[in-house]
Amino acid sequence: MTSASSDYGMWGLVVLNSVIFIGFAFSFFKPVNLRDWRSFGAYSAFIVALFAEMYGFPLTIYLLSGWLGSRFPGVNLFGHDAGHLWWLVTGQDGNPHFGALHLLSFAFLLAGFTLLSKAWHVLYHAQRRHQLATAGPYRYVRHPQYIGFVAIMFGFLLQWPTLLTLVMFPVLMLMYVRLAIAEERDSEKAFGDAWRQYAATTPRFIPRFGKAGRARAVRSR
């Protein structure tokens, strides 16, 4: 692993990138209660695990080095470009940063952070007025903040997949579903019929497209 020392072991970058992406999400999400902190903590754990492998120690490359070495004998597995595993295993040439999946990952990251920002803005003002959040992205889905976190994590998986984050991703998705259901029980207790009417016409995670979805969005404005 002597070649790994030139492209990995940069723990300062692990800390810097973790702080940037966790802090960036925090500025949009601003957790308040225990449920918020659980969802934000799960996202933070994913980010730390990701950057620990991206710049610190390439655990996934190390564990798969036997198989990867036999399949790609001419590739420096501990060079940083090899960490873009989707690019490597599909036999692509050139700079992986300009690959379709890498560029697509930026679209998911941008969409996720934008959704977090817009959802928090609506939720913050609704909570201050002790009202149900039904404006902005809440016109289309009941839990846009969780969708935002999932979009960000999926974007990073397209960019830099690791064994740990690939395992964490479905577990965190399940956790967000359970948190959403618990949040809905609290909302029903707090808002009663207003919540039930909102939930009856607004999907939990997947927005409705077509005439029904557009009509719902118009009525919510």
Rank of each mutant, 00 (worst) to 15 (best):
G83V: 04
G83H: 06
H84M: 07
H84C: 13
L85N: 05
L85W: 00
W86K: 02
W87D: 03
W87Q: 04
W87R: 02
W87G: 00
L88F: 02
L88W: 00
L88Q: 05
L88C: 02
V89Q: 03
V89T: 08
T90K: 01
T90H: 04
T90V: 11
T90E: 03
G91T: 03
Q92M: 15
Q92C: 09
D93F: 15
D93R: 15
G94W: 07
N95I: 06
N95S: 10
P96W: 01
G99L: 09
G99D: 15
G99A: 12
G99T: 04
G99W: 12
L101V: 00
H102G: 01
H102I: 00
L103M: 11
L103C: 15
L103V: 10
L103Q: 08
L104S: 00
S105P: 08
S105G: 12
F106A: 01
A107R: 00
F108L: 01
F108S: 01
F108K: 00
F108R: 01
L109F: 14
L110M: 07
A111T: 05
G112L: 08
G112N: 02
G112I: 03
F113M: 01
F113R: 01
L115C: 12
L115R: 06
L115M: 13
L115N: 02
L115V: 11
L116H: 10
L116F: 10
L116T: 11
L116Y: 06
L116A: 05
S117W: 11
S117R: 13
K118M: 05
K118H: 09
K118T: 13
K118R: 15
K118F: 10
A119D: 06
A119T: 11
A119I: 10
A119V: 06
A119S: 13
W120V: 01
V122D: 13
V122W: 11
V122E: 14
V122L: 10
L123F: 08
L123G: 12
L123D: 08
L123S: 10
L123V: 09
L123A: 12
L123N: 14
Y124K: 14
Y124R: 15
H125M: 12
H125A: 10
H125N: 09
H125F: 12
H125I: 10
H125W: 14
A126T: 07
A126G: 04
A126M: 12
Q127D: 15
Q127I: 03
R128A: 13
R128W: 10
R129C: 08
R129H: 08
H130W: 05
Q131L: 09
L132P: 14
L132C: 12
L132M: 11
L132H: 11
A133N: 04
A133T: 06
A133M: 04
T134V: 09
T134R: 09
T134N: 04
T134E: 07
A135C: 07
A135R: 13
G136E: 03
G136S: 14
P137N: 04
P137A: 08
Y138T: 01
Y138H: 13
R139F: 01
R139N: 02
Y140F: 15
Y140Q: 10
V141C: 04
V141P: 05
H143V: 05
H143F: 09
P144V: 08
P144T: 15
P144K: 09
Q145W: 03
Q145A: 11
Q145Y: 08
Y146I: 06
Y146D: 05
I147D: 14
I147G: 15
I147W: 11
G148I: 13
V150T: 10
A151V: 03
A151W: 10
A151D: 02
I152T: 02
I152S: 04
I152N: 09
